[in-house]
Computed example of a mutant assay.
Amino acid sequence: MPRTVNTTDFHKKKEVRDNEYARTIPSNQLSVSAPLHWLALGLHDFIRMPLISAFYGLCFTAAAVAIVQLVQWQGTHLVVLPSLVVYMLIGPFLALGLYDAAWEREKGRSASLLHSMKAIGRNSTSQWAFTIILVVAMIFWMRIAALLHALYPSVQGAPLSEFAPFLIVGSLVGLVIASLIFAISAFSIPLMMERRVDVMTAVFTSFNAVKSNIPAMIVWAMIICGGVLVGFASFGLGMLFTMPILGYATWHGYHETVKSSRQT
């Protein structure tokens, strides 16, 4: 049943009907070390499901290698951000297969590659709506980045002090936008897949979970950034390992963070 969305949706934790639109599902309180436990579980899944891990690892690797090659071919840093935008849009859909595999193992079933691939189409309406949200956010980020280039020194070989306004303002703006995108996407995709909720419920719930567990989420964000950096620093080959492990870990993190229907 649709209802009016207001700013208190990110703060309220009340019991609601399962079919209510744009609700906020309560979250559990996490210890700051919780993401390390998720990572350990993700590594365990990676070892136990080598075929599925290898398939999705290769998909992530192929995308990363394509980005690295594109940057080298173009010879300019201007293609980096658009390329990363495309990677961030492809990533969540590939991760759906990893979430499904981890979910199947949680239920005591044998995970299969075919079943995980079918999960990509589960609750596709909400998933595409979320993709549109990400696209709009990324376009906004790119436009802001283009405007900030006005602060870039116009003289080659300018001293570091002249780069300071560009670096400081650009870093702060990037941090704010990246934090917002992380907050709304941390647990949105697995929530939409498992419970088939609408996109706004997924976004509100993810934002609330991150806001309620900031120390743990900072650790989790650093782990994700570290995994992605290792992947790109190894010319994409590291993605064979880091991305499947992070995908499985995200599923376990979602289950530990967002309260189940039996807990609400």
Score class of each variant (00 low, 15 high):
Ser188Arg: 13
Ile189His: 03
Pro190Trp: 07
Leu191Tyr: 13
Met192Arg: 11
Met193Glu: 12
Met193Pro: 01
Glu194Pro: 00
Arg195Trp: 01
Arg195Glu: 05
Arg196Leu: 00
Arg196His: 06
Asp198Cys: 10
Asp198Arg: 11
Met200Asn: 07
Thr201Met: 04
Thr201Gln: 02
Thr201Arg: 03
Thr201Cys: 06
Ala202Ser: 15
Ala202Thr: 12
Val203Ser: 14
Val203Thr: 14
Phe204Tyr: 11
Phe204Cys: 11
Phe204Leu: 15
Thr205Cys: 07
Ser206Lys: 11
Ser206Gln: 10
Phe207Gly: 12
Phe207Ser: 15
Phe207Lys: 10
Phe207Leu: 15
Asn208Leu: 02
Asn208Cys: 08
Ala209Phe: 09
Lys211Ile: 04
Lys211Met: 10
Ser212Gln: 09
Ser212Ala: 13
Ser212Val: 01
Asn213Lys: 11
Asn213Met: 05
Asn213Ser: 09
Asn213Thr: 07
Ile214Val: 14
Pro215Tyr: 10
Ala216Val: 03
Ile218Tyr: 00
Ile218Ser: 00
Ile218Asn: 01
Val219Lys: 00
Val219Cys: 01
Val219Glu: 00
Trp220Ala: 09
Trp220Gln: 13
Trp220Gly: 04
Ala221Met: 08
Ala221Phe: 04
Ala221Tyr: 06
Met222Leu: 15
Ile223Leu: 14
Ile223Trp: 01
Ile223Lys: 01
Ile223Thr: 08
Ile224Asp: 04
Ile224Pro: 00
Gly226Val: 08
Gly226Glu: 10
Gly227Ile: 02
Val228Leu: 14
Val228Arg: 02
Val228Cys: 04
Leu229Thr: 10
Leu229Tyr: 07
Gly231Glu: 05
Phe232Ile: 00
Phe235Cys: 03
Gly236Phe: 01
Gly236Ala: 06
Gly236Val: 00
Leu237Ser: 05
Leu237Ala: 11
Gly238Cys: 10
Met239Phe: 12
Leu240Lys: 08
Leu240Tyr: 07
Phe241His: 14
Thr242Val: 08
Thr242Met: 09
Pro244Ser: 14
Pro244Leu: 13
Ile245Met: 14
Ile245Lys: 06
Ile245Pro: 06
Leu246Phe: 06
Leu246Arg: 05
Gly247Ser: 15
Tyr248Trp: 10
Ala249Trp: 08
Thr250Gln: 15
Trp251Arg: 14
Gly253Cys: 02
Gly253Lys: 03
Tyr254Gly: 02
Glu256Lys: 12
Glu256Ser: 13
